[in-house]
C-alpha cells in the first residue's frame, strides 16, 4: 500500500500595496484615537501656546529665571533620591517576594498591591496625619517623654521623600520581582554546586541577572518622580518647590500660561530624553514590562 504524497507548489507571495490591517490593529484603534484626543492634541496646544503666548521668548525666560532653574534642578535631585531609595528598599522586598514560600509571597504581594491601588491623595493625606506636629509620631514621642516639643517631620524634604518613595516603590518592586522570577532556580543551584557561597551566588548570578529589572524599575520611578505634584505640594515646605509646582504657580498665581506651557514642554522633553537614553541600554519593552527578563523560560 503506497500513497504518493501530494505535492503543491508554494503559493507565490502576493505583494499588496496596502497591507490589510489585521484584527488587533483595528481593536487597538479606539484606544489610539482616545489617546490622541485627550493627550496628543492638548500637548500640541501646549507647545503652540508656549511659542505664541506671547512669543518663543518664554523659553529664554525659563532658562534665565533662577527660580525656575533651581526648581528644575531640585526636581531632578529629588527624583534621583527617590529612585535610589525605592530601589534600595524595594530590592530586598522583591527578593523576599520572589524567593519566599507561597504564603509569605502572597502576603507581601497583597500588602504591596493594596498600597499600590490606594488613591495617591489618600496615601499623601495619611502621611500628613502621621507626620504632622500633632500627628501620630510626634504624639507618641511626646507622650512617652522622649521629646519635649514636636520635631518637624513635615513640610520638608524628609516628608516629600517618605511620601514619594511610598507611592512609587511598587513600580520598583514589581519590575525587580518580574526579573527575579525570570531567573531559573537551576541557574542559582548550578552556581551553588560549582562552589559559590550564597553571597557569591547573589553577587555573581542573581544580581547581574536582575539588573535589567532594576534599571526598568529605576527609570519608571525616576520618570514618574519628575512629574509629581500633589505629594510634594502637600508634604513639602514652601522652599522646596518642584517643577510641576512652578508650572501651576505660573498659570494660577502669575497668570502667565505661556510661561507655564514652556516649563511643561521642558519637563516633557526631559522625560523623553531619559526614555531615549534608557532605551539605548535596556529596551523600551522591558521598561514597560512588555518583554520578559533574560534567563527566562523562552529561548
Amino acid at each position: 500500500m503506497t500513497s504518493s504524497p501530494v505535492v503543491t507548489a508554494p503559493a507565490a507571495p502576493r505583494r499588496r500595496r496596502f497591507e490589510r490591517p489585521n484584527f488587533w490593529t483595528l481593536a487597538g484603534l479606539p484606544g489610539i484615537v482616545y489617546l490622541i484626543a485627550v493627550f496628543g492634541i492638548p500637548l500640541v496646544f501646549i507647545v503652540v501656546r508656549s511659542l505664541t503666548d506671547p512669543s518663543p521668548a518664554n523659553y529664554a525666560a525659563v532658562v534665565e529665571d533662577p527660580l525656575y532653574s533651581a526648581s528644575l534642578w531640585r526636581t531632578v535631585q529629588i527624583a534621583f533620591l527617590v529612585t535610589v531609595l525605592s530601589l534600595a528598599i524595594g530590592y530586598p522586598l522583591a527578593y523576599a517576594m520572589a524567593r519566599s514560600g507561597k504564603r509569605l509571597a502572597m502576603v507581601l504581594g497583597a500588602a504591596l498591591l493594596l498600597s499600590f491601588w490606594t488613591s495617591l491623595l489618600v496615601r499623601t493625606f495619611a502621611w500628613q496625619v502621621i507626620l504632622n506636629n500633632t500627628g501620630l509620631v510626634n504624639q507618641f514621642l511626646l507622650g512617652t517623654g522622649i521629646i519635649d516639643e514636636p520635631i518637624p517631620l513635615i513640610r520638608n524634604l524628609f516628608a516629600v521623600l517618605v511620601g514619594m518613595v511610598h507611592i512609587l516603590i511598587p513600580y520598583a518592586v514589581l519590575a525587580i520581582y518580574a526579573s527575579l522570577r525570570g531567573i531559573k532556580p537551576e541557574v542559582e543551584q548550578a552556581a551553588q554546586s560549582l562552589g559559590a557561597s550564597p553571597w557569591r551566588v547573589f553577587t555573581r548570578v542573581t544580581l547581574p541577572l536582575s539588573l535589567p529589572g532594576v534599571a526598568a524599575g529605576g527609570i519608571l520611578v525616576f520618570v514618574l518622580s519628575l512629574g509629581f505634584y500633589i505629594t510634594p505640594a502637600l508634604l513639602g515646605g514652601p522652599g522646596d518647590i518642584l517643577i510641576s509646582q512652578s508650572v501651576v504657580l505660573q498659570v494660577q498665581q502669575y497668570l502667565q500660561p505661556g510661561m507655564g506651557a514652556a516649563m511643561a514642554v521642558v519637563l516633557v522633553a526631559l522625560v523623553l530624553l531619559v526614555f531615549v537614553i534608557a532605551t539605548r541600554f535596556i529596551g523600551l519593552g522591558r521598561i514597560l514590562g512588555v518583554t520578559g527578563a533574560p534567563g527566562g523560560e523562552s529561548r
Binding site: 531559573k184 537551576e186 543551584q189 548550578a190 560549582l194 559559590a196 557569591r200 551566588v201
Partner: peptide, 30 residues
C-alpha cells in the same frame, strides 16, 4: 557549595550573562 560535586541539569542552567569561557571558569574562580 562545600560538597565539591559536579551537577548537570536537564535545562543546562548555564549563566546567561556570561560567555562560554566565563561559564567554565566560574567554578575555578569560586
Amino acid at each position: 557549595h562545600k560538597r565539591k560535586i559536579g551537577v548537570v541539569f536537564q535545562n543546562y542552567a548555564l549563566f546567561p550573562h556570561m560567555n562560554v569561557l566565563k561559564n567554565v571558569m566560574f567554578p575555578l574562580e569560586m
